[in-house]
Design a protein around this nucleic acid. Structure first.
Length: 465
RNA sequence: GGUCCCUUCGUCUAUCGGUUAGGACACAUGGUUUUCAUCCAUGAAAGAGGGGUUCGAUUCCCCUAGGGACCGCCA
């Protein structure tokens, strides 16, 4: 058997959405699992809608989530001549013919079919007509001569055997009247030339597959294996599209979802391996297979994405988390000053406990990151005379401490609890508010130690309410 | 409308004829805790409906219902 080769073939007509990312992921994983290669093919033959910025965005997205392709990026538009050559070859071999119907004529037929509520299918008018009957003023398209009799069976690696009557597949256009190839031709030729062994793509391509297989057969090419994976649906059960919000990778990265978490989520969306939920990249390559792909479409679930991200935040290496956090803040929030970096790094161990996203860490860490304490107006109201006295008492004691540590602070706090005749909350809450601006936050010792002596003193001087 | 596909807790899923139908997320309750969280424990929660086949069906077959995809000289 020849070496496994898969590809991801997006068209750069919009931002890549996570359905596409999952398709890319499955192709990539399958090839890596089989020790094969994974290629990227940019299908940019729609000159009107293809945009360079989208091409870049697609490549960046794949890189962000950790999918790397082998070899050179394959650009479909550069291969158009090959596609046209095949069209003419099919014509010569009698597997295709020129159709002189005007687009108006076709439109008219479609409209009529719609009115009568019967399915439209091109009537194969020019299939057997003689070229000499051709009208002079019309540039023909080239149509593929599809099978009319019998049925075809697609042995799909995910869906099983799919049988279809050949006459439901029309004589599709392979070359437009401007001489350019259409999708089914280009895709078939490219996949053949790229030596694809497995075509893994969305369910929505299933009918195309029947068309493309006929091209392979006519050209006597080896037919690759196909696997049509179920689509990802939105919460209301419709195919995910680029227009849906929260559908592109950027939508997730900007709220602080990390690539590994999203990768893991996408992997488990429509694929499973026993009861295993968490997969490192290495594990996903090791365990990925086509048998594990389910047949039914699955819905996107934000709370699941969040909890996956939370899992990664809590379990990943803290240095890596720090790096990702800084990168995230610099890109989407504000640049973290170098003098704050160290404080943040030290505080990660407790800041991450309250976070589902990098954004959460950023927000929870505001009391460190921001130069000025931002006070929650409601919480300030909790600072009454008693609280002020506690704060003041603490200030006096704190000034005597050279090197704050938990061991030194603990007796101080306990002493204040006693002398003020209160409980821990009576001391902790006012201090937390004056130091961070909010009654919610990390433990009081964590706050003090993360800020450092100088900063704590500065904040204790703050006049509130 | 035609063709094709799908159907297990709210969601993602396990089960490859015999299980108290399992796990994860979310949810609820309780515990730990200096707040919010984290963490731990517990709980509620599913085989669309109807026929077969079988000693036995969530699992195999058929029908119905519901959902989805495709039906471009887009990709």
């Amino acid at each position: 058997m020849s070496k496994v080769a898969t590809r991801f073939a997006p068209s750069p007509t919009g931002p890549l959405h996570i359905g596409g990312v999952r398709t890319a992921l499955f192709n990539w994983l399958y090839s890596k699992n089989q020790n094969g290669n994974f290629f990227l093919r940019i299908e940019d033959t729609d000159k009107e809608r293809s945009k360079e910025e989208y091409r870049k965005q697609i490549i960046n997205s794949l890189e962000w989530i950790g999918i790397n392709f082998d070899g050179e990026e394959y650009v479909q538009s550069k291969k158009i001549d090959d596609h046209i050559k095949v069209a003419h070859e099919l014509l010569k071999k009698g597997n295709a013919y020129k159709c002189y119907c005007s687009s108006e004529e076709i439109e008219e037929q479609k409209k009529r079919a719609k009115q009568k509520k019967i399915p439209y299918i091109y009537d194969r008018k020019w299939r057997e007509k003689k070229e000499t009957d051709a009208p002079k003023d019309i540039k023909p398209v080239i149509r593929f001569k599809s099978k009319i009799d019998g049925t075809s069976i697609l042995k799909d690696l995910v869906q099983g055997d799919v049988e279809i009557e050949n006459n439901t597949i029309e004589d599709f256009v392979i070359l437009r009247n401007d001489g350019t190839p259409t999708y089914n031709l280009s895709a078939a030729v490219d996949d053949h030339q790229m030596n694809m062994s497995h075509i893994i793509r969305g369910d929505d391509h299933k009918i195309n597959t029947f068309k493309q297989i006929q091209i392979y057969q006519a050209m006597e090419w080896e037919i690759p294996s196909f696997a049509h994976i179920p689509l990802i649906h939105t919460i209301d059960g419709k195919k995910l599209s680029k227009r849906d919000k929260a559908s592109t990778l950027d939508d997730y990265s900007k709220i602080g979802i990390m690539p590994d978490a999203l990768r893991n989520y996408l992997l488990r969306l429509g694929w499973s391996y026993k009861d295993k939920e968490i997969f490192t990249i290495e594990e996903s390559i090791k365990y990925f297979n086509l048998e594990g792909i389910g047949k039914s479409p699955s819905k996107l679930d934000m709370s699941r994405i969040l909890s996956m991200n939370e899992h990664y935040i809590k379990n990943m290496n803290e240095n890596d988390l720090f790096d990702q956090l800084i990168e995230y803040c610099n890109k989407f929030k504000k640049e973290i000053k170098t003098d704050k970096e160290d404080k943040i790094r030290k505080s990660l161990s407790f800041l991450k406990n309250k976070a589902k996203t990098l954004e959460d860490i950023f927000i929870n860490g505001q009391y460190i990151i921001a130069d000025e304490v931002i006070f929650n107006q409601d919480d300030i109201k909790l600072i009454d005379e008693r609280a002020k006295k506690v704060i003041n008492d603490f200030k006096v004691q704190f000034e005597k401490i050279d090197q704050p540590s938990r061991e030194i602070l603990e007796p101080v706090i306990n002493g204040l609890i006693k002398s003020n005749n209160t409980n821990f909350k009576g001391v902790g809450q006012p201090l937390r508010i004056v130091l961070t601006g909010s009654k919610f936050g990390p433990g009081i010792y964590d706050i003090i130690l993360s800020l450092g002596k100088k900063e704590v003193q500065k904040r204790l001087d703050t006049k509130i309410a």
